[in-house]
Design a protein around this nucleic acid. Structure first.
Lengths: 360, 360
DNA sequence: AATCGATGTGAGTCCGGTCTCAATCCTAGG
DNA sequence: CCTAGGATTGAGACCGGACTCACATCGATT
């Protein structure tokens, strides 16, 4: 049985050294490929190692090199393909440079994030990539940065934290998209996000997520330029999950002064919004126009195909990992993290509102 | 600047001990919450630790406890929502038991998988969850098992490896689905998979993936029961990625004796197949019926909604993690990993073929 | 007052590597 | 034949905790 095997201690350099009849130091040198070792010794050691199936204990190695060749990645939800793809970009890049990835999910909860960061630090990861749940509560991230541990932010900025941040300019694309909707004739434009806030949205409200905040600003600028007021009553935060989002959607399109266009803050939300609209027997874009962030492949398959805001998610993951590894390896050249821009892809889910609403 | 801070050595028990004016051993006991420590000492140590912002080095801790509280997860592709969701189930469960997850992607490549397993073992993870790329090349997994490291397989079985395996009975659901298509009138049923093989499919071919192999067997059984031959020429492996899948799809529906129904082996493949059909101007299910594995949310939004085979992916992730942790914690009770079953969800993408094909 | 078991406590070892340092070998130059 | 300088080599320290062991301390027993 393997009960013996399972009990068997791991083979160590000392074991190899003994088998090869050399000192532990020599064996370590031959194995670690450093220092001076005669051909004779090297051969004997390598042969012994092979024979004993020696495998170095990376933990021990990390302990005195101080490098774990591991990076920590903290995201809100890997289940969301947005993060799935970004994570893919990160792991691919990490692997290429010999790094591994410890992944932690926070469910977009700051407490969980603080915990995640602590755990990762305790495990002595070489660096961290974090998609911060909040752009305001960032003391834990600041602490990481101040302790000198390499840190890169993904997707969202953190207030007053000057670290490499890989994100697209949301204000800009939001402005562009909103302008597009306005030009198409929409005035009652809704925005649905799962961002958790203390209460319902009100004018000029401070939003904890830079991403959402920037999108709001972009919308507002577009409305301002058109000489119109941003319809505050159609900005819906705290959207929650599936059923909750559907409820909000129904309310938005069935209220007295209904939304004629809905912007979903991400692909998961978009899914529920579209489904709710279908369930009401309404048609996109005849009854309601729809636009969402994240260009998932399936958005091309719906009827009509959805107009979306595409972000180079995979590339952003790659960039985040590259920037982090650059920091870890101490190459000073900041190599300016590339600027990423989102793109409005007009497919079929936006059209002029049924009857151009007369001014209120 | 923080160049000072970054250079600063981490605070260790020794530092705390000195600050608290006690021996290192006492400090360690107070901090680690073990052994006997007087209230007085405990207080001083804890205060000093707080003051110095002491954080235990988990690496060092792991070194002599032998436990890293980390499990390794090896999947084919996290970008695939199937694995994304399973991973979510794993990480959620792991976190609940105090374990972290190191994630490695293999791109369904056995070489990469072997490497991944080795790396994880070197890092001394407490256990492994692997979705094996091949059910045949499994020496590396066998080695893991024989070395006594806890191991759980996900999604696919491994030939001759008797370890906990969390998977659904593919033969059965494949049989059910195929029977359904046959009953609906289809005879020319195609199956598209990305499984890599040496050459094109031929009768009785040995397939490296238990998952695909079982599906083939289920199809075959359904055909057998109907007294028909499995249309070997419509079994397409090595489907590759997007464009390649589309090409195969076009060939399948445009060939002289075309497929009247297509089964996609997973959601990613399904996406490309459906898009290719759309691009040809053909309609589902009027021109071609379609059925796919994986019940992604978006399948409800297409026109028509897609008929799919739903697998309890999240729960399977949870079960895999639970089983692994059970092994790690040495609780002997095998607690029989629950049996998972897939479910055929009939939506709108399957209908009778346009003209029931006369027997050949 | 002498004894005993239950804490408290500090010195030191160990985990499995890396790395410093002094000692030993060798070989070419003088 | 002798010696300087580089190549080898082994002993042992060290990384940062966990844990063993021997040595106090102290109130409770008798």
């Amino acid at each position: 049985m393997n009960s013996d095997a399972s009990r068997r201690r791991d083979v160590t350099v000392a074991d190899v050294a003994k088998a090869a009849q050399v000192s532990k130091a020599q064996a370590a040198r031959a194995l670690g490929n450093y220092g001076a070792v005669s051909d004779d010794v090297r051969e004997r050691v390598l042969a012994a190692a092979e024979e004993l199936e020696y495998r170095p204990n990376e933990l021990a190695r990390s302990m005195n090199t101080g490098k774990s060749h591991t990076i920590g990645v903290v995201v809100g939800d890997i289940e969301n393909p947005h993060f799935g793809l970004a994570t893919r970009g990160i792991t691919d890049t990490a692997k290429r440079s010999g790094f591994n990835v410890i992944l932690i999910n926070t469910d977009e909860d700051t407490e969980a994030e603080i915990d995640a960061v602590r755990v990762l630090l305790d495990k002595r990861v070489d660096g961290l990539i974090v998609a911060p749940a909040s752009s305001v509560e960032t003391q834990h991230l600041r602490r990481v940065h101040e302790s000198g541990r390499p840190l890169v932010l993904l997707d969202r900025k953190a207030q007053g934290l000057d670290v490499d941040t890989v994100a697209v300019d949301m204000e800009d694309i939001s402005h562009e998209s909103t302008s597009y909707l306005l030009k198409t004739g929409h005035r009652r434009i809704a925005f649905v996000s799962t961002l958790k806030t203390a209460g319902p949205y009100h004018d000029g409200m401070q939003l904890d997520s830079s991403q959402i905040s920037d999108r709001r600003d972009g919308m507002k600028r577009a409305f301002d330029e058109a000489g119109l007021d941003l319809p505050v009553d159609l900005i819906r935060l705290n959207a929650g999950a599936d059923e909750s989002i559907k409820k909000i959607t129904r309310e938005l399109v069935q209220r007295p002064d209904p939304a004629t266009a809905i912007i979903a803050s991400d692909g998961l939300i978009g899914l529920s919004v579209v489904e709710a609209i279908h369930e009401l027997g309404l048609s996109i874009p005849d009854d309601v126009s729809f636009l969402m962030y994240d260009d998932f492949a399936w958005t091309r398959l719906t009827t009509p195909p959805l107009t979306v805001i595409a972000q180079p998610v995979y590339d952003m993951g790659v960039a985040a990992a590259s920037a982090l590894i650059r920091q870890i390896e101490g190459r000073k050249a900041p190599a300016a993290t590339p600027v990423f821009t989102a793109e409005l892809i007009r497919r079929g889910s936006v059209a002029a509102p049924r009857a151009v609403s007369e001014d209120t």
